[in-house]
Simulated scan of single mutants.
Amino acid sequence: MATQTKAEREAFSERLKAALARGRKRISTPTALAEAFNLRWHGRSVTPQAAQKWLTGTAMPAPEKIEVLAQMTGVPVTWLRYGLPERRDTGGPPASEARATRYEKVDNGTVTADELRLLSHLRLMPAARRELVRQLVQELALESEMWTK
């Protein structure tokens, strides 16, 4: 396998941590990652030390292991490995034909009235609810990053 750059390893590590954080069973330690991985992997066991290297960006797993990690976390292989979105067939019209909504992305960076209203509502919420909203937005943004229509 080709040697990855430090930036590639670190970017993979960030994507892996994001994928692990969004799962039903949150995996946050190298030991938990190794155990969960080994339940799905039929090759030589992965050690917590190897999982630690994946999580810290000092090493990347082989492509076949990345496939298992992607299946394990429910994310596209191309996104986990390269940061590229994968096409998801939603059965609906292509994104280019989808009807625009008032929440559609504004390309020029202008803040819309809806966004200002949303921000004012967010500021009125207690800290715990703001954190829930932040987590939800982070999850939805990650989902958009992983999949294209």
Rank of each mutant, 00 (worst) to 15 (best):
Ser13Asn: 06
Glu14Gln: 12
Arg15Thr: 10
Leu16Ile: 01
Leu16Lys: 06
Lys17Trp: 07
Lys17Asp: 08
Lys17His: 13
Ala18Ile: 06
Ala19Ser: 15
Ala19His: 04
Leu20Pro: 03
Leu20Ala: 05
Ala21Ser: 15
Ala21Asp: 07
Arg22Asp: 14
Arg22Leu: 10
Arg22Trp: 07
Gly23His: 08
Arg24His: 12
Arg26Asn: 13
Arg26Phe: 01
Arg26Met: 00
Ile27Val: 14
Ser28Asn: 13
Thr29Glu: 05
Pro30Phe: 00
Thr31Ala: 14
Ala32Asn: 07
Ala32Thr: 09
Glu35Gln: 11
Glu35Leu: 07
Ala36Thr: 14
Asn38Pro: 04
Leu39Tyr: 11
Leu39Arg: 15
Arg40Pro: 08
Trp41Arg: 01
His42Gly: 15
Gly43Glu: 08
Gly43His: 07
Val46Gly: 01
Val46Phe: 03
Val46Glu: 07
Thr47Gln: 09
Thr47Arg: 05
Pro48His: 11
Gln49His: 12
Gln49Phe: 04
Ala51Gln: 02
Gln52Trp: 07
Gln52Ala: 09
Lys53Asn: 11
Lys53Gln: 14
Trp54Asn: 08
Leu55Ile: 00
Leu55Arg: 02
Thr56Lys: 13
Thr56Val: 09
Thr58Lys: 09
Ala59Thr: 09
Met60Tyr: 00
Met60Gly: 03
Pro61Val: 02
Ala62Tyr: 08
Ala62Ile: 02
Pro63Thr: 15
Pro63Lys: 14
Pro63Phe: 06
Glu64Tyr: 11
Glu64His: 10
Lys65Ser: 10
Lys65Gly: 05
Ile66Gly: 10
Ile66Phe: 03
Ile66His: 09
Glu67Asp: 14
Glu67Leu: 13
Glu67Met: 12
Glu67His: 15
Val68Asp: 05
Val68Ala: 03
Leu69Met: 04
Ala70Cys: 01
Ala70Gln: 04
Gln71Ile: 04
Thr73Ala: 06
Val75Ala: 02
Pro76Glu: 07
Val77Asp: 08
Trp79Leu: 02
Trp79Thr: 13
Leu80Tyr: 08
Arg81Met: 10
Arg81Tyr: 02
Arg81Gly: 13
Tyr82Lys: 13
Tyr82Arg: 14
Gly83Pro: 00
Gly83His: 03
Leu84Asn: 15
Leu84Ala: 11
Pro85Met: 08
Arg87Asn: 11
Arg88Cys: 12
Asp89Asn: 15
Gly92Val: 09
Gly92Ala: 10
Pro93Gly: 09
Pro93Cys: 12
Pro94Tyr: 08
Pro94His: 01
